[in-house]
């Protein structure tokens, strides 16, 4: 049972993959955009931060669910 719970929590924590890829892509695009248009840096930074926050949210959900699995089922 404990092993299964651990596996479940690990699977929930896999959401971090998506968030990592998403934030990576967003940041690379933002770097390109800033290189192309340095004068739009502020706007790009704001949008990047928003996108990162939204992408990061999925990782956070996974983390919270993993914690809950461990705490409530363990």
């Amino acid at each position: 049972m404990g092993a299964l719970i651990a596996v479940g929590a690990g699977i929930a924590a896999l959401t971090g993959i998506g968030a990592g890829i998403g934030i990576g892509i967003a940041t690379s695009k933002a770097a390109e955009a800033i290189a192309r248009q340095p004068e739009a840096k502020g706007e790009i930074n704001k949008t990047l931060l928003l996108g990162c926050a939204l992408a990061e949210a999925t990782a956070i959900y996974g983390f919270v669910i993993a914690i809950m699995i461990i705490l409530f089922l363990g």
Binding site: A53, E56, A57, I60, Y61, F63, V64, I67
Partner: peptide
């Protein structure tokens, strides 16, 4: 829910 969980999850994650 997303707002709440983002903030809470970040703080909780940091704490853990």
């Amino acid at each position: 829910l997303s707002l709440c969980m983002r903030l809470f999850g970040n703080v909780l994650g940091a704490f853990v």
